[in-house]
Structure formats: C-alpha cells, structure tokens
Design a protein around this nucleic acid. Sequence first.
DNA 1: CTGGGAACTGGAAGCGCTCCCAGTCTTCCG
DNA 2: CGGAAGACTGGGAGCGCTTCCAGTTCCCAG
Lengths: 337, 337
Amino acid sequence: MTEGVSRRQSTLDEVAELAGVSRSVASRALNNAPHVSRAKREAVERAVRQLGYVPHPAARALATRQTGAAALVVSGEDPSIFADPFFAQVIVGASAALEDADLHLMLCLAASDRGRKRVEQLLRSKGADGVMLMALREDDPLARMAEGAEMPVVFGGRPVGLDPRWYVDVDNVGGARAATEYLIASGRTRIATICGRLDTEVGRARYRGYRDAMLAAGLEPYPPEGGDFTEPSGSAAMAALLARHPGLDGVFAAGDNMAAGALRTLREAGRPVPSDVAVVGFDDLAVSRMADPPLTTVHQPIEGLGREMARMLVAIIDGQDPTPLILPTRLVTRASA
Amino acid sequence: MTEGVSRRQSTLDEVAELAGVSRSVASRALNNAPHVSRAKREAVERAVRQLGYVPHPAARALATRQTGAAALVVSGEDPSIFADPFFAQVIVGASAALEDADLHLMLCLAASDRGRKRVEQLLRSKGADGVMLMALREDDPLARMAEGAEMPVVFGGRPVGLDPRWYVDVDNVGGARAATEYLIASGRTRIATICGRLDTEVGRARYRGYRDAMLAAGLEPYPPEGGDFTEPSGSAAMAALLARHPGLDGVFAAGDNMAAGALRTLREAGRPVPSDVAVVGFDDLAVSRMADPPLTTVHQPIEGLGREMARMLVAIIDGQDPTPLILPTRLVTRASA
DNA sequence: CTGGGAACTGGAAGCGCTCCCAGTCTTCCG
DNA sequence: CGGAAGACTGGGAGCGCTTCCAGTTCCCAG
C-alpha cells in the first residue's frame, strides 16, 4: 500500500531484487507472459506498487523495436489549414482508438520543408509504429516518402493519383451527388458549385459527384468555381459566381466553411436563402448548425474517419491486412435548401 | 550521391565501419561535437548519406535520457471539448515552436480515467522531455500528478487554486474588463454576462473582469449566468437571461461560441443586435467574423499562447528558469456592439 | 520408485547509441 | 631540439528492458 515516492526512477532490476526474483521473471510478470508462478507474479506486482515502478519506454522500445506511438501527419504548406475544426474532430476519433490500443499519438504538422524533413526522419528511423497521413495534395512529397517507408501507413482520404494499400475515405462522390440531387429535386435548375482545391482528391471527388448528378438530370454542370475549403474563399467564389451567373438558383458548396462564406456573400448581395438561392454544404461542421439560415449539408463521420484510420493502423501493426474503408455520408436537411 | 536504400535499418556501427572510423568518432561527427578531424567528419557524412542512415530514436533516448518529444495534454471529461477550434490554434503555435527546437509533439486527450492513467504513466516514466497542460478544472487530478512529476511542466492558463512555477496565460481579467467598459461607454447600463465554467480559472477571471468594470462604473453586475464555452450553452444562457431580465441592453459573453449562441437566441427572440441588445464576445475565433452580425470581441493570441508555452517548455528543458507570461488581449470592434 | 515432460527460473546476450577515459598524435614554444 | 599542452581517437562501459536458452524443479504415469 505504501506508494513509493522514490526520487530516482526505479528500474526493473530493483523491482526484481525487492521481489526476490530475477529480472527475467519480473519482466515476464510485468508483461503478463507465461512461465511465472502465481507466487512470484504477485511478489513482483507488490514490488512494482511499492516502488511506484513504471517501465522506461525508451528501453522497452529499444529492446522490442516497438515505440508505442503512432503519428498523425497533416500535410499542407500553410499550418493554419490545420486550424480547420475538421482535423480536431479527426484527432478526437483517432486519439480514442489509439488509446484503446495503448498507443500514444504524435502529431506532425508538415507545413514547412523542415517539417517534411522531420516527417521523413520519423518514417525512416522508425520513430513510430505507424503513420496516418492526411490532406495530401497532388504530387505531395509526403506521398513518396510514405510509399518508401517500411512502416504501416494509413491514408486518410485517398491521395491524388495513388492507389495506396490502406486508406479510409469518405464517400465524397456519393455525398456530393446526393446534395446536388436534393437541390434538383427541390426544383432548382441553375445549380452552380463552389468546389474545394482540385489538387486534392476530396475536391475532385465532390466535383465529380456534382457533375454526375447534373448530367444524370440532364442539366448543364457549371465549371468548377474554385475555393480552398476556407470561409473567405467560399465568400469570394460566391461573389464571382453571382457576377458571372446572376440567374443561378442553387449552389452546392464542397465544404461547410465555404458554404458559410457563400451564405455571407448572398446575404450581403440581398439574395435570400433559400427562397432565391438554395445552398447545400458538405461536412456538417458545427458552423452549419450555427449558420443563418442553418445549412443543409452532407454529413460525414469525421470522428469516425479518425477512429477508423487509427483502428486500421492498429490492425496493420498487429500483422493483419485490413481492407480499405469508405465511410458513408448522409444528407442533413436544414433551412438553407 | 547514391542514396542507399538498404532494407534493414543501418546502424551507427555500419556507418563507422564504412567511414573507416570508430563508432565514437561517428557519433561525435553526427552530433557535431568537437574533437573530430575535418577529414573524418566528412567521411562520416559521406557514409551517412550512402547508407541513408538515420539514428535510432529509442537508442538515443536510452543513452541520453532525453526523448526528443514534448507532450500537450488537454484535460476534460468530454473529449469533444477538444473539438473547440481554440485548441487547434494552440497546437499550431506549439507545433511550430517545438519544431524549432526539434522536438516532437505528443498529444494526450485526457478525457477518460484510462487517459489520465496514461498521462500519469507518461509523467512518471519520463516518456517525454516536458509537458504542457491545458484546460484544467478545479480539483483536476492532473494538477496533482503534474506537481509531483519530475519533469518540466508548463501550464496553459493558470489552474484554479494553484500557483504553478511556469505558466502562460492570457489577460482574461483585463480583456473582460475592456469588453464591459466598451459596452458601458456605448451607453448601455443593463449589461448581463454569460460566463464560462466557473470551475476554471478562465471562467472566473473573465467574470471578475466583467464585475470589476461594472462596479467601477457604478453599475450593478448581474450574477453569473453559466455556460460551458459551447454554442448551445450560450444560446440557453441567453434565453434564461432574457426570461429573467427582459430589459437588458448589453451582454458580455465570456467566449465567442457562447456569444454566437446568444446571437442566435436573440435573433430568434426578435431582439435586434446591436440596436436593442449589444453583444461582446471573447476569443476572436473564426466564428466571430462569420457571425451575423459580426461579433465585437476580445482578441487573444491563441496561436501565441501555444507558441509561448512551447518556447517556455523548451527553455526549461534547456535548464533555464523562465518567468511566467501573461499575454495581452485587445478589443476588436465589429458590428455586434 | 523411477523417468520424462511440462512448468518455471535466471544468466547472459543483445537492442543502438552516448560518453568517459586512457592513449596517440600534433604542434608549437622556450 | 625536448617536452608538454592540446587535438584527436577508439575501446568499453553503460542506458533499462526483452528474450533466448540452458538448467531446475515439480508432478505424475508407469
């Protein structure tokens, strides 16, 4: 019961000595491996408690060649891309799943060259047991590094032009199609789109979904009006759209932040939503509920994305070979469309 | 030039052998320590490049007793508290500063008991070189753990009832006072407040600032109407306030999310902002710019908070003893007040 | 009572790196 | 030209843990 508060960090040797067993037995007891008699196991446990012993992670890592950590790397030249609440939710999910596997989470914001270099080091030095990779753009140097890495790598969202072995993605095409179809079903015919960066697979997939739905309904898809998933870019794109196609009566924005920006521009332009222009977003971020009017949007399981990525990674680390996963999306109708 | 792509991870011994030097020299060359002749240093560098050698972090950690990582732990029983974009910004700042010091970022969301246990292990096993601690509540078990830890600990925001040696905080009292004074200066007299959790120092400090300003102006401060920094809580608190004090003409909300909620309730209640009720928030999150009307709020340097925490931690790790830091806040006037 | 196997035990060899230290080689001053 | 300060060098002892393996002990069928 006497929680030891020894100054110096105690070692396994000390535990073994106090328990009157050899270091090997103590080690086995600790990792509850077989071949330890009940008596000694208990003696070791007692000693551990008495000494307040905690194994030294580095030593263990060195011996087992496992670090006990997984990395989540977020690519993007501007670190503020990470400020998008999207990532926070991914992290919540990933963190929970990693906790279940008793792995620590290392976070790498690979924005600068320096940051990328460090990620590369991490990959090559086996500084983690596995990596989750997010927000890759076309020709992202991180993709190549990851390919070469001898380490489990799970992609969050498919990277452009690559077909990785392990990834978790969201049904972007289906979601975008559903959103557009909803707009069409509500009687809109001049439906434009504000799309995300087209050098990302998300951006492309959502545009593809929009276009598919338009074509299927015999409508003319608008050319992509580009945003970068941020609120200001959505606002600007909406303004451009309004200037070019004043007669539009519907907008599918490939992200809620952009949709919020579009809403702001429409409000400022005196175009009531949804009576004049209907707007549908994508993501179902908190902002969609707080927007005015509340945003009809495509819900995607963001936390689930993080969770599944982590789970998949854990499975790979455990020697399994899970199959890629595509998470479903679903339309959430609110007031904006 | 031949980037080696050896399957197995190469070791320092191999580098040394290839360079024709001893392991010691190779090690010194790598860490550019003194006592290595120019020739050998170059030979080592060449060998490193040829082998694509990257030092093994665990081995290094074991030998140096330094892990090369710092942890950011966010406390809170509900992991979704972390979804607040506030933390994302803190992370961006901290990440950048840690990168400068070549430290990795470990993220711990200490929500469950299990999570807390893991943090404790981390603290006691020296699994990181230092820790940044955020969002502590009154009687947070994490505080005690941190006190006992023989590891540099920097607090982000002062914890309730403790006076830690190292912390970075934001001038919450001053910011809240400025916000309230602004409301007063604009002629409002019946100014209520929606405060944050009063079991956190932030919540208390902001209420104190509000109260100070009210008293100084000879006005009667309203009793704290409680929120928990989330949008729904702000909305609910506003509704309660409206029911209790229909005549109020100003509200200071101790957080932008809550302010956004208040705005929503006011809109739904048909109380125009700011003509009828003026609203000031705190945080200057993205939502404040996107709100309708755009929110007058107290800007706090969130990324700076993260950055300074990390810098302070690095300084401590380097053996210095920096003094606590209180970052300034400043009022940003927009349309809501 | 035996022999044989299963269950247990602890010595020892690493894991890959750092760093102390004793020894070697320069170099330069008196 | 002798010698010592000073710059280099590499051997070796760890850092704390896991794990292989040879040796012990124990139990039970024969």
